[in-house]
Amino acid sequence: MTIALKVSNLKKTYKNGTVALKGLDLEVQSGEIFALLGPNGAGKSTLIGIISSLVNATSGEVEVFGDSLNKDRNKVKSHIGLVPQEFNFNMFEKPMDVLVNQAGYYGVPRKIALKRAEKYLKQLQLWDKRNGMSRMLSGGMKRRLMIARAMMNEPKLLILDEPTAGVDIEIRRSMWEFVEQIAKDGTTIILTTHYLEEAEQLCKNIAIINHGEIIQNTTIKQLLTTLDIETFILDLDKKPTDEFLSQLNAKITDDYSIQLDVKKSEALNDVFKKIDAQGYKVLSMRNKVNRLEELFFKMTQKDNNKEKSA
């Protein structure tokens, strides 16, 4: 498998002295949807900015499909499509013009660009809006317009920087489907998101970045195995007593529901046996929080504490 993105010892210090990246190394294989997570200010946007030529690196190397950013910037640019975090299209242009112009900048002839724009506007449910003013689009539509724009050069590497921020659930799911489809068609995708459920749903591999460094780079599956406790919410058929709660080491969440921490090594059958022995029935059961979210929080907290004590 070829390497879509290789980042080596990448450093960035801004003019005001802020160190955004401290010698970051990262590899993304081609054809995958790769999650890049990190708290605000961790260095994600700086990294994306450098890869997409919007930020100058202080030192280090970026290669996209074997082409070096330092040696052939324009070749690297031709491989990439970028969906940034903030809206960055001309609000006074029509969506159709935004797309066709972007394609033109990549050297796509107007005739082809018009067909491509139609295809992506239809796929992203913006076709009806193609001739209106872009600033009149809703937040979700503006995000989809930026995705369509990033596809106009049919990139080999698509970078999505929080593409579903502020988008309702229905649109978010349709955007996931779109992303999964283009990944199936062969486009490598790097996704940053604050919706960790999104990363869990779409991505196989993940890197967590904090304080300008990668603190974890593994598969999501592998990462989740490091969680030794899972928290469940159980809805019971009657109000739990204090004795019942202390025996199970559970907390009450409302009149008929309890929160229970279960070790990975512990079988759920044993837990149910204990509940059954007390004469309670479990009516329904669910995870308390997104597992990845919990893990992410723990890892970044641990890293922040390390940083403070250093």
């Binding site: 919007l54 640019k77 031709s78 001309n90 900048y105 050297g107």
Partner: peptide, 17 residues
């Protein structure tokens, strides 16, 4: 205007010389 509203980035990310 393009810088202010950030759509200058459309050109900067493209391989346009």
């Amino acid at each position: 205007g393009a810088k202010f509203s950030k759509h200058i980035e459309e050109m900067l990310v493209s391989p346009m010389p």
